[in-house]
Design a protein around this nucleic acid. Structure first.
Lengths: 229, 229
DNA sequence: GGCACGATGTCATCAATCTGTCATAGACGA
DNA sequence: TCGTCTATGACAGATTGATGACATCGTGCC
């Protein structure tokens, strides 16, 4: 399993280094930058699993970075943890309303920040935190690379496994073929959109059980979704 | 769509009342109790969408409640926000590690707590956090691409879906056929005005329910509107 | 090296559904 | 009543998704 990718945007070199060390110790793949604009570029290049963002940074301001991350479809759903100065109450709330998922007030203990980030990771990408995903009668253990349906072990190919995992991380949501290609195959893949259809079919075939409804919903002219049930 | 259900566990009557008031104002269906054991019973009876839990409460302690909520399969995935005393750093981290999703340190501003709860709701249940359009007995979830009427799932074609979505974004307003073409088909489309009539009919047929009035209003020589009801 | 095998990406084709237009019947207001 | 505007059923063409087949590629095994 790949480590969860964390983008750290912090312009105090000492603090940045400390946090990078801590997060790496927790098993995160950390990319750090002191600059807001560069952060946006990095986020576009490779979408991180979580962003830790200082409010007061060089270049584009923290809230602006937050807003832009939210505006771009690819990064719109990446959780953001803001680091704010103590007492700036309005800033905090504005941050949360802008789309940050959490904030931590300086000065903070690294342990606290790590605990908060872990809590969010558990919630957002349980598979990355070594937990079992459960949607309807499906359960997927990313660590063991195992998928069960009603207790039955299913045999899925690698691509179908990643596809199902992605669906289970966002149950109910509809994704276009392009989004699925980006998420499951990678943004740099150069693959026919129609190929997604074929893998959807393979996934369906892989998870079908007699007497159980097909949880993969086709949304004409929009894409596919995993039925939340 | 129903309001998100929030279970509030707080034994300070004044604070409990204040928070209950605030959360109700935000559109939550609040159930409040001062007692940890009762909280567990209530949570089993009707699984809430989110729990706000004071660390120091009568009966079973906060962390124990948290642990038990996590242990029970039905409530294992319900987000929990803890209220802790200032400075109890270890408690905070223990709380997060136990499975709480967030905590707020007393004394806190109700606005902050509400903002945090909203942020979590956005993340967890987008459908419950205002990303669902609701007009009368219709509800439309754009991310899941689903339309419900009185809880019934409706099957709409792509164009009817876009048409209804547009209407629901501007309930009550009358739009000419030209405006509808621009908004739903795109400004560069080159389509007969009369075609709108046909899709209005298809939309009506798609959302009709026995015993329910037609919410699409025809305004002679002007256009159509979705009845705000 | 040579072979078997599973995985993967593409195609061609079929079936289902959707769409825009018409012609006609019906409703409404003056 | 008349003229105007809307509702409706039918339809052919266009999209879109499902499916089976196939060539390729890499891996492990002999």
């Amino acid at each position: 399993m790949t480590s969860p990718r964390l983008l750290l945007v912090e312009d105090d070199p000492a603090l940045a280094e400390l946090l990078e060390f801590r997060f790496k110790a927790e098993g995160y793949a950390v990319t750090a930058t002191p600059d807001g604009d560069e952060a946006l570029l990095l986020a576009q290049e490779e979408v991180p699993d979580l962003v830790v963002l200082d409010w007061m940074i060089e270049g584009t301001s923290g809230i602006e970075v937050c807003r832009r991350l939210r505006r771009d479809k690819a990064t719109a759903h990446v959780p953001i943890v803001m680091l704010t100065a103590r007492g700036a109450e309005d800033d905090k709330i504005r941050g949360l309303d802008t789309g940050a998922d959490d904030y931590v007030t300086k000065p903070f203990s690294p342990r606290e920040l790590v605990a908060r980030v872990n809590a969010i990771m558990r919630r957002i990408r349980p598979a990355l935190a070594g937990e079992t995903l459960i949607v309807g009668d499906l359960s997927l253990d990313a660590t063991a690379h195992k998928v069960l349906r009603r207790g039955q072990v299913l045999g899925l190919g690698p691509t179908e496994f990643r596809l199902l995992k992605f669906f289970m991380e966002h149950p109910g949501r509809v994704f276009s073929r392009g989004q699925l290609l980006d998420a499951v195959w990678g943004t740099d893949s150069d693959i026919e959109l129609r190929t997604v259809d074929v893998h959807i079919r393979r996934l369906r075939k892989g998870i079908e059980l007699p007497g159980a409804a097909d949880p993969v919903r086709t949304v004409r002219s929009a894409g596919y979704a995993l039925e939340a049930v």
